[in-house]
Design a protein around this nucleic acid. Structure first.
Lengths: 185, 185
DNA sequence: TCAGACATGTAAGTCGTTACATGATTCA
DNA sequence: TGAATCATGTAACGACTTACATGTCTGA
């Protein structure tokens, strides 16, 4: 796919666990080509508009598999909202409460979004019919996918989303616990 | 407290949602003093060893409250493990399974830690007796704390930890869902 | 025709981490 | 006495983001 496509894929499908920006993306693709892990070719279908299609190479596949098998260290976390909540212990109770209420509103909105996407995917998997709007995101980097590969792809996509949903639900549960804990006493 | 104390506090108490390093900490403290939000004074009790105690000023309090009241935008997330899982849809099932199993082991170990700390705090709150090992972390920056302030501080500390615990439990639940979903079919 | 999407790229700047340098003190 | 901890600080590097520059194409 192209750099632009990758950006779209990440934005529309992976935003609950990843983000990417052009300033990082294009130089990275460049270096992949330089090191022989990918090839670049101008898209012939795009006329005058320049559009580069990147293909993973054999060496790229190996490097990818090696990366997949490498142990992953947990991300360094900096949750500003949690920091504020912790430090609000020096302030009147209502300050802590306001922080948590704001958090809850944020998370609730996200949850609605994710649940809608999940429902779409769930229907697609159950029906075995893959909707265009998802195919546009998932399909473009693998023109010829077998039915079983497609099925696995959708299943994994849904499970990724499921991770986001469970995480958010846990946060909302926390908000509710805090709210009742702090307001009753 | 001193820069060193802050580092310790973050490491021992806030590691599930924050991390700090000297390269960031000392220059920041320096700039707080420069802008009049804090004062620095050499600790007279520390003999020849140099130790700077920082105190928040009136202006610092105001800036702190202003920061607390500012809306917090959700952190930009980059979860490499989730990315690997998503991209493993192109690989044999066992690759996805391995990734999730590894994740589960990590999270399970963390959970045990957090639950132990939470139990300690819970006992302290219920008994109204604050153990030295926690006081060392929480107490040093506020020599004279009222009983009610202390109680709120411990309650908020425990609730912060509770956030970490709920988050981890959600991740473990996810792992179990994925494991059963992927291995049975 | 013109706004918005498509598409690529770079320069500058910010933020954060690592590694190092330095020295005092404590305690086994 | 020597390892561990206390304590402060900086330089260099690397990661990441923002803003900008440039041009094409599509559809209302």
């Amino acid at each position: 796919m192209s750099g632009y496509d990758i950006k779209k894929l990440v934005e529309m499908g992976l935003s609950h666990f990843w983000n990417e920006n052009y300033g990082n993306l294009y130089p990275t693709l460049e270096s992949l080509v330089e090191t022989g892990l990918a090839t670049r070719q101008a898209d012939p279908d795009s006329g005058k508009r320049k559009r580069n299609i990147y293909q993973i190479t054999e060496a790229g596949h190996l490097a990818f598999q090696e990366w997949l098998s490498r142990p992953t260290d947990p991300p360094a976390i900096r949750n500003e909202l949690q920091l504020k909540f912790f430090l609000s212990s020096t302030q009147p109770k209502k300050v802590s409460l306001r922080i948590v209420r704001e958090y809850r509103v944020q998370q609730q909105a996200l949850l609605a979004e994710y649940q809608q996407s999940a429902a779409l995917l769930r229907r697609a998997i159950d029906a075995g019919e893959y909707p265009e709007e998802v195919e546009e995101i998932l399909g473009q980097h693998a023109a010829r996918r077998s039915a079983s590969h497609k099925a696995k792809q959708y299943k994994v996509f849904l499970l990724s989303l499921r991770h986001g949903i469970l995480a958010i639900q846990a946060r909302i549960t926390w908000c509710d616990e805090v709210l009742s804990e702090l307001s009753t006493k």
